[in-house]
Structures are given as structure tokens and as C-alpha cells.
Design a binder for these strands. Structure first.
Length: 158
DNA sequence: GCCAACGTTGGC
DNA sequence: GCCAACGTTGGC
């Protein structure tokens, strides 16, 4: 099984939205590398950190679970959608999506800053400069450390 | 709002 | 196939 980090702007869709919706298709990924991770590597049952970008602080704020195989992202065919792609056809879809399900919201967000300074989190790809991918693999070790930190209330976690 | 880091596009 | 121009992302 694999572990992931799913990045999204908090103002667009937050962990609270995720909690309310329970299960959503993770639509709108329009980057080949991110798509390839989703289409080729994500499996049902994989877990992902839910990460708020453009937030204060930018942080992992919860966990979601992958609950479908990849399938064509319907928004690529929808002219009215922001993510409409005129190059995509139903016969040859360009973009994929998986469904994700809410698992938990962290008691304490684990900030990007923490990921950068904690010795046991060194090397996470999300901390690398210029890392703009919205779908990133996370090692099992890093995932478990962050999940444990997030689930306890601690003045050191922020 | 700024700007560095990337990805994509399109002319050649 | 190169590369300049342009657009987007996202931390700060």
C-alpha cells in the first residue's frame, strides 16, 4: 500500500468541506506527473495526508482514503467547468481522477514548517523548494509520524 | 502582492 | 527539437 499527500487550497476545499462531503472525486488535476501518480500508482485503500496550501499555516490537516481506482475526470469534458480541456475526448481522455473518502481531521495541523525542521521528517518532497505537485508520494515512515503527531494535542506540533 | 520555480506553448 | 515567452503555483 502507498501513502500520499493531496494538496489543495484551503479556500477552495478544506478538510471541513471534506468532512461534510464524506466522499468526493478528486477532480481538476491537470499536471502529468500528478496524474500519473494518481492513475498508475494509487490503489484502493491507500491513505493520503490532506494538505492545505495557501493557508495559515500551510499544513497537513487530516487523512483521507482512496476508495476508487482511477477513472477519466468528468470535468475535462465539461465546457462550463474551469478544468475543461478541449484536447480531451471521451475516446481519448487525458486526465484521471480517484474518489477519496474522509478519514479524520487532525486535532493539531502539522505545518509545512514542522515538516522542514523536524529531523524525523527530513526529505519529504513537499518540503523541497519549488515543489508544486499537488499529488505527492509520502513514505510510510513520514506518514505515520505525521499521523501520530496530528492525532495528539501538543503545543509542539504547531 | 511578490517572485522563484516550473510546466506548457508555439514559432522557427 | 530548441528555446523564448508566457502562465501557474504556492510559500512568504
Amino acid at each position: 500500500m502507498n501513502y500520499w499527500l493531496l494538496k489543495i487550497e484551503a479556500a477552495c476545499f478544506s478538510i471541513d468541506d471534506m468532512k461534510r462531503e464524506k466522499k468526493v472525486p478528486w477532480t481538476g488535476i491537470r499536471n502529468y506527473q500528478a496524474r500519473n501518480f494518481m492513475r498508475d500508482k494509487m490503489k484502493v485503500g491507500d491513505l493520503a495526508l490532506f494538505y492545505h496550501s495557501s493557508a495559515d499555516p500551510t499544513a497537513a490537516v487530516g487523512v483521507v482514503k482512496v476508495v476508487s481506482e482511477a477513472y477519466p475526470d468528468p470535468t475535462q469534458f465539461d465546457k462550463k467547468d474551469d478544468h475543461f480541456d478541449p484536447k480531451a475526448t471521451k475516446e481519448k481522455p487525458m486526465w484521471s481522477v480517484v474518489d477519496v473518502q474522509f478519514v479524520r481531521k487532525f486535532k493539531q495541523p502539522i505545518s509545512l514548517h514542522q515538516m522542514k525542521i523536524r529531523p524525523d521528517l527530513v526529505g519529504m518532497s513537499v518540503t523541497q523548494k519549488g515543489s508544486r505537485l499537488s499529488v505527492l508520494p509520502v513514505s510510510e515512515k513520514h506518514f505515520k509520524i505525521i499521523e501520530e503527531l496530528g492525532n495528539k494535542i501538543s503545543s509542539f506540533a504547531a
